[in-house]
Design a protein around this nucleic acid. Structure first.
Lengths: 162, 162
DNA sequence: CTTGGAAAGTCAACAACACTGACATAAATT
DNA sequence: AATTTATGTCAGTGTTGTTGACTTTCCAAG
């Protein structure tokens, strides 16, 4: 052993970390597969689902805010929003105070699709939490929040905004 | 309350489930951002990283096995492997028993890149587990394994194979 | 009231990475 | 000898991301 090796193995070990890398990969793929399967016969994809999800969670959110949450360019988001608005799933209201802003809302039709996409994904997560026992959710949540970049945490803790 | 409402709120509640949807989204994005940042200046992308990761974890794995793990088409994987082999990061050996099979190994050069890509991602996860306390890892792992499709669990529990 | 800048929208070109379908080759199996 | 399996390859396509350039609208500060 080297003089700086205090005999403390790292926690978690490298092998456990690598397994967790794989757990994240496989779980995330399963998690997105439910809505993906529903969307594959429509003209929409995962990007549309993400927009619909966050507009549903934060009705009246602005385009700028959505850009921050989704972490894509406005050109990329705009392509998605244009389709959703044209197809009557999302409504675009001029901001009441600041009329440059566009506030986004799901229409009834948009809410129907949101529920349809969300249902199997929610069922998958609920089953996972129920099988793991009542205390698993908080550990799971804490680890994921530690993994993410700190600025993003506010978008979970406070669905309303700041 | 309706006659079928037994007064049992679902566990977890819908709001907690939706927050976990967002936790997965933000955490996964952060988790992939480390290697993505390193790769953006190279001719490689996330698909190359995934191939390198699993070849490193299961040296000698076959193309078919890798296809099963990664869940992509052989055309998609082949494009990636062709580059990695051409650039001397991955080695392609004819199977000793079945000479149709190609067994995949990282070269020294491949292992260098693997370590480089893996380091910040591992550091991120280790920090997340350490902050969350010693018991968080097992709950975290259990929930993720419950989320994924069952066939995938074997690829974590036994890095060697079956 | 004019000017500067922020918010939003659009157009064009491009890249990564997935897909399907068709086909080729070599080797193992039946 | 015929079939199946494992792999590789070519061509075409779709989604989603990127840059860069530009316009319109509109609030707010000088």
């Amino acid at each position: 052993m080297s003089p700086t090796d205090h005999g403390q193995p790292p926690f978690p070990t490298e092998d456990e970390i690598l397994r967790s890398v794989e757990r994240l990969f496989f779980a995330y793929r399963a998690f997105t597969s439910d809505p993906d399967r529903i969307l594959e016969n429509m003209a929409y994809g995962r990007a549309h689902h993400r927009a619909i999800h966050f507009i549903n969670r934060q009705p009246g959110t602005t385009v700028n805010r959505l850009l921050d949450i989704l972490g894509v360019t406005k050109q990329s988001l705009n392509r998605v929003l244009r389709q959703l608005i044209k197809d009557g799933l999302v409504e675009n209201r001029v901001g009441p105070q600041d009329r440059r802003e566009r506030h986004l809302y799901l229409t009834d039709k948009g809410r129907v699709l949101e529920a349809q996409l969300s249902a199997p994904q929610q069922a998958r997560l609920r089953q996972a939490f129920q099988s793991a026992g009542p205390d698993a959710l908080s550990s799971f949540s804490e680890v994921l929040e530690n993994i993410m970049d700190p600025e993003m945490r506010a978008h979970i803790k406070n669905p309303e905004g700041e």
